[in-house]
Design a protein around this nucleic acid. Structure first.
Lengths: 114, 114
DNA sequence: TCAGTGTATAAGTATATGCTTATATTTGCA
DNA sequence: TGCAAATATAAGCATATACTTATACACTGA
């Protein structure tokens, strides 16, 4: 229940980014931890360039962070972003995307490199 | 702290509508009660058709309700809409728009017809 | 019934958006 | 060193969006 008052412009910018089914699903998936690009491609059933472009928008806005691990690039939520509290509230009110990752795991397609 | 789980599609649709500075300001103004179209035109400093078109989008999505009072049409938040809890959380995290209505009142432009 | 005020709609236009295909870049490994 | 895999970027294109101006509609009051 944070009361981090941000500007209306910042809020609108974040909401616009999250007001897209693909990107909202992406942040929904990241709620449970980091994911790499190829996992998004599998789950979203979209082309790799399209996924990459959505991730870039989220990253440019600072909503997600990226981290390279070998040949993979992992994305995660940027919990220190000004609008993260809003995003968190939104994620609490939409269906959990966890099952999609579980299905991916069962198909042996989950990337783990620790 | 409702836990009204809505579909991801519905959430995305609402967020897309609120992801616009004009429309976010409109719902921000409605947080404190109903407003008529000409008040939005004054506060937002936009053309009447433009305001009308934004209101129509919000109304078509069910986020706001309209009520005619004589020659004026008043809009208010639709608190029974499925995505209202999300909207409420968002409104709690952006600056209050009340001052703009107070300024309008001081300029003698606030419409009251009860 | 007619003029004035408030609001909605229609049509046109410039820009934004989200995809596609093609190609570049980075890294791992034989 | 060279090829394959993972990711990013570029360019092109169709559709969506948000404004504009012009006009239609609804209600009020003389």
């Amino acid at each position: 229940m944070e009361k981090t008052i941000i500007t209306l412009e910042e809020a609108a910018k974040t909401l616009k980014l999250l007001g897209d089914k693909t990107r909202l699903t992406i942040v929904g998936l990241l709620k449970d931890g980091e994911c790499c690009v190829c996992e998004f491609v599998d789950v979203l059933e979209m082309s790799q360039p399209s996924v990459s472009q959505h991730l870039r928008k989220l990253r440019d806005a600072g909503l997600v962070k990226e981290k390279r691990k070998g040949q993979w690039v992992f994305y995660s939520l940027n919990t220190s972003h000004e609008t993260y509290p809003i995003m968190e509230e939104i994620l609490n009110q939409i269906p959990d995307q966890k099952e999609k990752l579980i299905a991916l795991d069962k198909a042996g397609k989950r990337i783990q490199c620790d």
